[in-house]
Write a protein that binds this DNA or RNA. Structure first.
Lengths: 369, 369
DNA sequence: GTGAAAGCGCTAACAG
DNA sequence: CTGTTAGCGCTTTCAC
């Protein structure tokens, strides 16, 4: 074990109280004593034991990330930002995954509670169907913040307006002259994440007075994709799901021969699957088919062709979530009403719609409450 | 705060000792008392406080991941597996990042020590230039395991034989008739990770009696890639580095006009950059240029064309690292000699070399010590 | 200014 | 079989 405060105090010939005051920078200590202690302290390489601190203070300076069973670049970018911001503010991060099921959530939250985390950031879809365990956590007086929109649960929230983003993507395609625009999404369709995408897509069409044709919408389900198999869809592990779904949905849309000239994909990863399928079906992107994605995926500028997409400020989202959470933890944010912060997104135009502009065409949307 | 053992005991009208014995399943308790306690316990939703347990026992049932400043899919797959296996064995995971610098390592290790972690998994390049902080950690009697090969530091280690993998990739290309094979790697060239790649590449050439031509090797440095700029290399953030380096290196190799017909890339992400560059330079893959990658990147089967690559068993690596680490922690692994476990890799043949085989051609290599 | 001591929640050793 | 108690390392109150 590490050397303890007590032992250091003994070796230094001072009381634990005095040593402690030096360590926390209290002014109530003789200047000469302080100086001597600070000088000699170096030798010991003393590391304060946070576990004991936590037990004493009831606060662990630790935040929990309950999150993402699904492995995606966007999540990774958020987790990294969460760690960095937490570290900058003196907090540690402990992770717990949940598949979003009742049991998964319960297990994750119990684990985090047992570590006395001061608050948690929910990254997954958990809060879509919030179990009582989240409420129980809040009843302990500890804050929860979600990085996705939350509808039937009260907590702080950092999101972006997915529907608006998909409306913008679709409107962009309409502006390029497309009328038969496909939508490749994947199950579960009841998920808000999927519904927001479909909603934005439909809104854009409605505003442009283009009829919504169900033939142009494919929602790939895990079962269908698995059953389909095929060259690229070898497995539908979590990590593959987006790609495989995009591949399968696009293949299906092309085979329907419904005159589709453009395709809105649920994510960049989905779009990558779409590009692959289009290629396999002998379609050239963007000549025969315009494709847009959605995310801040780093690959998206190295696909063939590079993807037009919406940039999600993933690191910003992680950072803001930590900021707000810690504000709550430290009582700096006392207002009763929960924070709903919507971050801006940006349309990044690259080559996948055949309309490469030299300067980025940007559109910002920001709202806070 | 959570309800404590003490409070539960009081409300149940038993002593803390008895309650504790029930909780840990000790036989030294009256059957009827036990039954009553177990029944009534449900009501309280009691969650044992690990913080207090840790303080008492000197063990926190927590493992630290000191890891990867560089955001890559492969790392994410490992972290996920680490979490899952740790959870399965009753351990929690706390993360700390380090950029691999002396200060970064020190900060990360101190943070983990302050949380009394029972051991750490090093994922980054930290142990390439091991700072004393790692040794100090070991001196506390706590084990370290690395997921990358470690050369000048003694600890357990789960790796795969990168040099052998690159030799195999190169040999595969030679077998297809290629003689002018390029190598796209990136700085720092002194890094073992890079050296192993170059070594494997050279070994294959030597065995085939093909001269090694420095013209065919490009090691992209951050400075060069940044200076170059260009359409795709907008920034060289960590997340982009592999792609950008691959793009830049390939562009450079093509412009050298040295008769290159095949290209070995440092990673799948590098290969994606290479595919993009080849496309931009008007080369068709695999007709004009065969490309191979290295990793277990999920995208690699959705690139155009799908990549021939080496599959790293990332989840396996994470899982084994946890297994070995916990064995050490729990004293089940007492042998003095450090474990060097080499996991098997597999050549996955897809379309990027023009030699698609219907059945996977596999090559396994495994060694343990 | 400094030291002594109580107690956070838990476990384990010991006394009854 | 059950209850009591000391102490893990720290912070904080209170007494000197």
């Amino acid at each position: 074990m590490n050397i303890s405060q007590k032992e250091v105090a003994e070796r230094l010939g001072v009381s634990r109280g005095t040593l402690h005051r030096v360590l926390v920078g209290s002014p109530l200590v003789n200047a000469r004593t302080r100086e001597r202690i600070e000088r000699e302290l170096e030798e010991f390489n003393y590391i304060p034991n946070r576990v004991a601190q936590s037990l004493k203070s009831g606060r662990s300076m630790t935040i929990g990330v309950l999150g993402p069973a699904r492995i995606r670049t966007a999540n990774m970018l958020k987790v990294n930002a969460i760690y960095e911001e937490a570290a900058a503010q003196g907090y540690s991060v402990i992770i717990a995954y949940s598949d979003g099921s009742e049991e998964g959530d319960e297990h994750g939250i119990r684990q985090l509670l047992s570590h006395m985390v001061d608050g948690i950031i929910v990254m997954g879809r958990g809060l879509c169907h919030p179990s009582d365990h989240f409420k129980a956590f809040q009843r302990h007086g500890k804050p929860i913040i979600s990085i996705y929109p939350v509808y039937n649960f009260k907590c702080d929230c950092v999101t972006l307006d997915t529907a608006a983003a998909f409306e913008e993507l679709t409107t962009y395609l309409i502006g390029l002259g497309h009328q038969r625009i496909g939508l490749a999404i994947f199950s579960p369709r009841e998920s808000r994440f999927v519904q927001m995408r479909e909603k934005g897509y439909c809104q854009a069409l409605e505003k442009a007075k283009i009829p919504i044709d169900p033939e142009l919408i494919v929602c790939a389900s895990t079962e269908e994709v698995s059953a389909k198999g095929g060259d690229y869809v070898e497995s539908l592990e979590d990590a593959d799901a987006d790609y495989a779904a995009g591949y399968w949905a696009t293949e299906e849309l092309i085979r329907r021969k419904c005159g589709m000239t453009a395709l809105v994909c649920a994510s960049d990863d989905t779009a990558i699957g779409a590009l692959c399928a289009a290629h396999a079906e002998g379609l050239s992107v963007p000549k025969d088919l315009a494709v847009v994605g959605y995310d801040d995926s780093t690959v998206s500028r190295y696909t063939i062709p590079p993807l037009t997409t919406i940039q999600q400020p993933n690191p910003e989202m992680g950072k803001r979530a930590v900021d707000i959470l810690i504000s709550r933890i430290e009582g700096r944010l006392t207002k009763k009403r929960h924070v709903k912060e919507e971050l801006p997104f940006e349309l990044i135009v690259r080559d996948s719609c055949g309309a490469r502009l030299k300067s980025k065409q940007t559109a910002r949307k920001s709202r806070s409450a």
